[in-house]
Simulated scan of single mutants.
Amino acid sequence: MTEPEFSIKKTLEEAETDAYLMTGNLHNSDIYYATHFLASDDFVYLQTGTGEEVLFISEMEKGRAEIESRVSNIKTTQDLGYREKIKEKKDASLAYAACISELLLREKVKKVSVPYDFPIFYSDSLKEAGFSIVPVKSPFQKIRSLKRPKEVEAIKYAQMAGEKAMGAAIAIIREAEERDGILYHEGEMLTGTKVNSAIDHRLLDFGCEAEETIVSCGKDTANPHGTTDGPLMANAPIILDIFPRSKKKRYFADMTRTVLHGEASKELKEMYESVLAAQEKGLQTVKPGIPASDVHNAVCDVFEKRGYDTYRSGSKVGFIHSTGHGVGLDVHELPGVGENGVLLEAGNVITIEPGLYYPETGGIRLEDMVLVTENGYENLTGLEKRFVL
């Protein structure tokens, strides 16, 4: 049998199991990656030690699955007697669990690897039916960290949309007028909510969406994920962090800019210059084969030499988070760019996003997204970095 496109044979051998089983829906990135199929209701993916792949779905999804799914072996609820099992079990969930049991029996599977987040109801049902269940770290997490050309193109598309939205947000802030320290745009008070709305509208123009976009101002920026719904202030830092996803292509991008309308204090200017210098050093460090911790430590070195506190030293102010993370079907995925020793590989898409945060002053963060290449990196973020507008 031909080895599947996404072989997880090594995981099954290490776990001493016959197959890997996962359930999910359109919110589960692993099952979409493995099948290239989406559905609002849960469905099942199975890969056996011999390389056989099975997609188990409801009967109504069969036609669409035959067109969209990369898995050709499709079994439906009707194939496995779902309706008859409902009559027998008097419960739809028990009937569905019985269908999964029958699927495993037909594939001659006895010991099953499942991801850590596998539903406990199905796990208990399978155990009662005589199967051995072994929770394992998802093998698809590592596979997904190495992006193929089509994935990179999908990420670039989302990034393009994100930059258009970021540009629109910055333009509104730049065009604003100050009245008693508060920003106004087109005669109305400019709020974080309004800027967030402008970002959403621009993303929709490109078929993208973003949840939990960060627009924060002033002391709210001292919290890395802080938000400001109300008025945006002049002479204060405004952090804009957008992580859009293409609704069709499903891939995310991620970027952050910090801007200020008015006059920046000497302290804020020095913070911005330090964050920019730390990011540039981090970017220069990126290349395949080095530990991600080298990038993180390079960023911390810059901050500490300039007298700022860092996460590395256990500080609760200053640089208080890791340097970055992988981006793909999830906005946060492998590899992490922090204190871990994982080696960067060509094909990783990661963020480099140092920041400084002080409660009495506010925060500054800059975030670019890069592709690790054979010789170094390609910066996928083209939007300029300008602090004072």
Rank of each mutant, 00 (worst) to 15 (best):
Asn28Phe: 05
Ala39Leu: 11
Phe43Ala: 07
Leu46Arg: 11
Glu52Asp: 14
Ile74Phe: 13
Tyr82Val: 09
Ile86Arg: 08
Lys87Gly: 01
Ala97Leu: 01
Glu107Phe: 01
Val114Ile: 13
Val114Lys: 05
Pro115Glu: 07
Phe118Thr: 06
Ser123Arg: 10
Glu128Trp: 07
Lys137Tyr: 10
Lys142Ile: 10
Ile143Thr: 11
Arg144Ile: 05
Arg148Val: 14
Arg179His: 09
Glu186Arg: 14
Leu190Lys: 05
Thr193Phe: 13
Ile199Val: 15
Arg202Asn: 11
Leu204Asn: 11
Thr221Leu: 10
Thr228Trp: 10
Ile238Gly: 06
Ile238His: 08
Lys247Ser: 11
Val259Thr: 10
Lys269Phe: 01
Leu276Met: 11
Leu276Asp: 10
Thr285Tyr: 07
Pro288His: 02
Cys300Thr: 02
Phe303Thr: 00
Phe303Ala: 03
Asp309Lys: 15
Asp309Glu: 14
Ser313Gln: 14
Gly314His: 12
Val317Gly: 03
Phe319Asp: 01
His332Ile: 11
Val337Trp: 03
Gly338His: 00
Glu345Trp: 12
Ala346Phe: 03
Gly355Leu: 04
Leu356Pro: 05
Leu356Cys: 04
Thr361Asn: 08
Gly362Asn: 08
Met369Tyr: 02
Thr373Trp: 00
Glu374Tyr: 00
Gly376His: 01
Asn379Thr: 06
Leu383Ala: 07
Leu383Asp: 00
Lys385Phe: 02
